[in-house]
Design a protein around this nucleic acid. Sequence first.
DNA 1: GCAATAGTGTCTATTAGACATTATGGC
DNA 2: GCCATAATGTCTAATAGACACTATTGC
Lengths: 234, 234
Amino acid sequence: MFHSDFPIFYLTVDVVLFAQRDGELAVLVVERGEEPYAGSWALPGGFVGDGEELVDAARRELVEETGIDGEGLALEQLRTFGAPDRDRRPHRVVSVAHLAVTRHAEAPTAGTDARAAVWLPVDEVAGRLAFDHDEILAHARERVASKIEYTQLAASFLPPEFTLAQLRGVYEAVWGHPIDPGNFQRKLRAAPDFLESTGASVKPAGGRGRPAEVFRACGRPFDRIGSPVLRSAM
Amino acid sequence: MFHSDFPIFYLTVDVVLFAQRDGELAVLVVERGEEPYAGSWALPGGFVGDGEELVDAARRELVEETGIDGEGLALEQLRTFGAPDRDRRPHRVVSVAHLAVTRHAEAPTAGTDARAAVWLPVDEVAGRLAFDHDEILAHARERVASKIEYTQLAASFLPPEFTLAQLRGVYEAVWGHPIDPGNFQRKLRAAPDFLESTGASVKPAGGRGRPAEVFRACGRPFDRIGSPVLRSAM
DNA sequence: GCAATAGTGTCTATTAGACATTATGGC
DNA sequence: GCCATAATGTCTAATAGACACTATTGC
């Protein structure tokens, strides 16, 4: 027996997609083309389809609204935002927010329902988003800062092969403070299940300097690593 | 403009309520009185009301189905489970799971839609729940084990005033392994923002032995503590 | 006295953090 | 040679873990 007199909901997904741009943590936002909040910045997202997995909906909306290919990017549920007054529209809209990280910070292309899609530094966009998206962004920011402590997620900001200097740059961008290069080297090289050497080495960024060893992440983005890389200890 | 041709959802909340019983981690489950899964164990939960906050719905369902008073218990969103086939019924039902901890492991009273409500050791109930509730329980178990590392949540398993032996018992029950009493003392006493002494002391459990100092938690359940109490380091 | 539990001391091995030093390239 | 970056070494302070020891109660 199924009661059909329970309240009905519309369900959306929103995606907080982070990347590293110019040494800063950047987030992908769209300019809304429709009411409510037309003209405001918002997180990409949209309605969950019939019979669609939540995480698949997040991936699809990302492609549709921004042209960013969701294949191969680290994507995980963040939390659900369901305050009764969070959407101005007549029906109640609950959103399952997702956290994602990409190495491809290429220019997005505005798609359906969006006038524009751009990467912006998180510090610039904080406090200026539609709906409760500022709150979602704040949660996502804290989550990613926390996740890179005990998973390999930081590597998802980089190409498959990278140097320790690049990886350190990710930690610095996410945490917002500099890290001692020497200690970072030792700590990450000692971590048992994070990095594996490719044997190759590349010239450093400026062209000058000793070539750096090239590494690969040896697991999946959200896999736990043996010894955490703690914020407090960097 | 609001499109009314988007899919509609039913939204439920489920609650994983943990307590400590006989030195073990116990979870509150109900025996379902209605189809689907009538007669099976399940987590307490139910449909979110019109205009109701998600966390309030979780609290309400807990009271309705088990008689457990939701006031004053640590309750937090866990994650949302929305696989298209997770409910056998015709409409899609998405559930926002919540994690809760209580010090009152008193006998629950079966309420609406439930034939019985009982506390069971988590090890006994794992693998025997309706819907995808085994998966939810597994997530909750991992979350609580993780939360007590860097918050004061462990104190929520105990009365407002407690001894370090009692608190150690909580960690042992949740993590499932014994902890050195001496080292635990030193570690927790040194933690800057977890405990405050009441000045009182009480006789130990068996009646025999040196009286133990009585403490209070000095913050809210999910507040971060300064120096984490790491599983790996206990 | 003994048993039991609370709490402290001690030693070792590991680790973070600061910072100096060496290594390897471009110019 | 100089400069820049990569990588290693060194020292100190803090901490986990094992375990011995002392303290305070009931019997």
